[in-house]
Design a protein around this nucleic acid. Structure first.
Lengths: 218, 218
DNA sequence: TAGATTGTTAATCGATTAACAATC
DNA sequence: TAGATTGTTAATCGATTAACAATC
């Protein structure tokens, strides 16, 4: 796993990878809060709701917002705005997806990505039949990938191809300018240092679930 | 961790969470190796292939195998067997899935889980029509969940329900004996301490991809 | 003011990496 | 034996937690 580089940041502070991973959970929790509820919330309340440490919550929030007020807490709406801004949920990133099998088509159809600022513009597959779509998104044959990716300046590639094809797909994407890869294939991808590969590691999740059962039931 | 049942059996050591996450990657890589290749492999070779540290690989492998031989390396087949044994890929765990939307049906249809020792026996959904299936697995109405889960002694629950329903589903599963939850819903789940909740956190992955782009393109 | 709650600096913990000894 | 490669003990690094000072 490669760490994100933190070299040149501007106004926004750098956050650790672990913090970055928790930020969507805060946003999620805050937006789900009933509208009529209190306009402020304490770190303690957030921590309890998300099963986190109180101090951890404060440190995390300090990295993205310009602070709460002692005795009062954080303004819910301000915090939501700060988190959304930090996570870039307002500007949309375009992405392509490669491998339109069941998982690929499910992701193409998933509307939730929109709210995270991700827009999958198209899927690609080796045997895409003319006019194929999923969730309203076109599925093109692989031949069209280089042109579309370069022309639309796509920076994010999602790989849902079979493991054997994943490295090849990764290479194809990155040679056409993709800088970040979201890999659902159970394969390690080798890419240049400036490319971020994020593995959605189902096997690892499963390993953790099963090890827990081993110890819970022994 | 379990001690060997008889004296000869090597006692499985405890592994850190981080190590556990990497184990499937080793297994994956080793099984993908061409059959005619060398029967032994060095930690260095594995490390290079998976972009890991050499020492890290050795430490990880030390936790699951009874060791390589200096100057020779690790026996590929032995290592595969040790990893599979440790990860429990031979004994099958049954699971149920709740929420038969697009993602849920995609997971129900995904054959890859079999090789990880996971068998999803059925899906459940609030509006499952009579006789519905996905990937050959039946999809039942929620009312049938308690009986089936308790009767088959299901210990793993997969949640692909909408965020609003996720907590309720979690409660339903755990009150019927489920001990490990694989949560794909973008919601934090509160569960008792003895329950493991593993979040497949798409929003967090996305956050990492986009932050990388921010810094890569600034 | 007193009490609650924030933010920061220091201590602890866990995981990775480095140094090195063991061994085939 | 010499060299490669393993395994272990020690040092470093990063993240979490604790202690405490600041402030509304």
């Amino acid at each position: 796993m490669r760490e994100g580089e933190d070299g040149m940041e501007k106004a926004e502070k750098t956050v650790s990878i672990q913090t970055l991973k928790r930020l969507p959970a805060y946003l999620n929790y805050l937006t789900a809060l009933p509208k009529d509820e209190n306009a402020n919330i304490s770190a303690k309340a957030i921590a309890e709701a998300l099963s986190l440490g109180e101090i951890q919550v404060r440190k995390d929030l300090a990295a993205v917002s310009d602070g709460g007020r002692p005795k009062v807490g954080y303004g819910v709406q301000t915090l939501i705005a700060d988190l959304e801004a930090f996570l870039g949920y307002h500007d949309v990133s375009d992405a392509v997806l490669v491998g339109a099998g069941k998982l690929g088509r499910a992701l193409l159809s998933y509307e939730g990505f929109q709210s995270y600022g991700l827009n999958i513009v198209a899927g690609f597959d080796t045997d895409a039949r003319e006019g194929a779509t999923a969730g309203g998104k076109p599925i093109f044959p692989m031949e069209k990938l280089p042109d579309l990716v370069t022309r639309l300046n796509i920076r994010i590639g999602i790989i849902t191809a079979p493991a054997e094809a994943a490295q090849e797909v990764c290479d194809l994407l990155t040679t056409n300018g993709v800088l970040a890869i979201w890999n659902f294939a159970p394969a390690h991808l080798n890419a240049q240092k400036n490319i971020l590969v994020r593995n959605e590691n189902m096997a690892a999740s499963l390993a953790m679930l099963r090890k827990h059962l081993d110890s819970a039931m022994q």
